[in-house]
Amino acid sequence: MAPSAGYSFHPQAYAKAVLHVCKHSSSSVLGLFLGHADGKVIKVVETIPLFHTHALGPMLKIACMLAEEHCKSADASLEIVGIYHATPSGSTEMTPVKAIADKIAANFASASVWSLDASKLPDKHFAFKGMGRVKDEWKAVGSDLVSLNSEVLSETSRLIGEMRFLDVVDFDDHLADGNKSWLNETLFAGDKLEKIRAD
């Protein structure tokens, strides 16, 4: 598959991923990006927060299978297009999640991995460092290839300030209490973020 010409993030997908990593700033965090390829651009339209403890085989498998079922019923073109992660040490190396990333890339050739660079958050910049799959290798994604409505960055900052990250539910939380929904369908209900359109 040809290298991707860019990655476009839906406002809520970006905000949800950032809030998830902010909620567990002293743990390793992992989540999925769902989306589809639109020509050469990868559109990330939804985020599924997974873990804030270790990510081991069985639960990771179940979480991915559930996410795939969700994709099928939400929109036929939707699939798992990447993952995001964060480490308590702040390292943006993809090594800890490389095995998982390789698995995702086996199913979606243009997969990408996004590591949180928390130093970018205070300046309201795009806070993930990307690695994209190009011809069976992981290559750094230039920041010029990422498109996100600029309003989203300031709204995400506001949400962090309002401590809205406390409301994010991930798959770990769901496993501990089934009533908590990893789909987070009401996380942004009534929030200004809902009205911002994707680029």
């Binding site: 559930l66 079922e69 969700h70 769901h174 089934g178 789909l183």
Partner: peptide, 16 residues
């Protein structure tokens, strides 16, 4: 049985 009471996440779970 568990997922019958869990709302939105019940749908993908039932299919799986």
């Amino acid at each position: 049985t568990a997922y019958k009471g869990f709302g939105a996440t019940g749908k993908p779970a039932a299919k799986l």
